[in-house]
Amino acid sequence: MSDATLGGPILRPGVVPPPRLTRPSAGMFALYVAAGGFFLFSLHGSDISVRSFIEGLPNMARLVGEMFPPSLARIQSVGISMLETFQMAFAGTVIGVILSVPLAILAARSLTPHVGLYYVARWLIALFRTVPDLVWALFFVVTVGLGPFAGMLTLVVDAIGFCGRFFAEAMEETDKGPQEALTALGARKSGIVFSAVLPAAMPSMINSALFTLEKATRASVVLGLVGAGGIGIELKVAMDLFQYDQAATIIIGVFLLVLVVERLSSMLRQRILRQST
């Protein structure tokens, strides 16, 4: 079938559609080539080996086989550690979210009272976010000793790094109309922040806070591996002692905990967003 049979109108001379694809500039083309080259170099650096993967499949099957049926021998101890894990995550998230709000106000360009405070707040948030939580956990284990308190402090810092940035962005992206209206009627800056900016940013902030709780629940599992409390240490011991059936119980427990937290946070999000003040 030729193009003519598709039935498009015949364009008059001089009416030409734009090209389907635009030719990249020389600089952009070089960038694409460089990115592709670095990807191949990265595969090489990662020791990619299909053969090792295929040869390891029986080991994987044997490991999964030894995990089932999961052992309930230490279920009470696992249950207590699981509760401790969630307590760390919940307390760390709540404290982190609360501390993030004033920091985010300082880090929002349109709200900060001084440009110097803006840069200090942005720098702090970037520091908290970019240093990995395992590094923070090691730092706090050295500072306050082994146990869940070190884990909770880690999650507070992690929450500030995450929420501080997203809260500030949510505040900056709010509709400026209500803020201008309140400015015009003589409201103070604090009034504008609390009665116009925060309510408008609240749906996005609640979203970020609940996502932080989910993230903290997952992270708190790993923090135990460096002695910062929670279920992680139980998992490490079980794996080190080749007690894969007990490890399976812990992994299923973690899976259920994260799943429940995700479902509850989703329900909570819907309920809170429907309410007005």
Binding site: E180, A184, L185, G186, S276
Partner: peptide, 22 residues
């Protein structure tokens, strides 16, 4: 300026209400 603005009502083209509040 804030005290003076308090004495002047300003109705905008768009209502500029805070939609999430009552």
């Amino acid at each position: 300026l804030r005290r003076l603005r308090a004495q002047i009502g300003f109705v905008f083209q768009r209502h500029n209400l805070v939609g999430q509040l009552s």
